[in-house]
């Protein structure tokens, strides 16, 4: 069985820094950037990308539709082949 790997891409200009995604992430991937976008909001980013499972919780809770979620099943490099 391959491992499920996920990732998110945050539209940093759309993000308003509400932090609901940080709260919603079950694997503690997301943090808020110290820098701000052109509107003055801190924006979300992946602090621990290796933990992302692509569960979509962050995308689903984001009121601004600022998060795109990717998920892929990692093909295990099999010794047998």
């Amino acid at each position: 069985m391959g491992k499920i790997r996920g990732a998110i891409v945050v539209d940093t200009e759309r993000c308003k820094g509400c932090e609901l995604c940080v709260e919603a992430c079950p694997t503690d991937v997301i943090r808020m950037e110290r820098k701000v976008n052109s509107k003055g909001y801190h924006y979300a980013y992946m602090e621990h990308p290796e933990s992302c499972s692509g569960c979509m919780n962050c995308g689903i809770i984001c009121p601004d539709g600022a998060i795109t979620v990717y998920r892929v099943k990692e093909e295990k490099v099999s010794e047998e082949t």
Partner: peptide, 15 residues
Amino acid sequence: LEEIIREENIVYRRT
């Protein structure tokens, strides 16, 4: 990440 963040792997995006 480059291998994950590909168009074909999108599972959620802004409608």
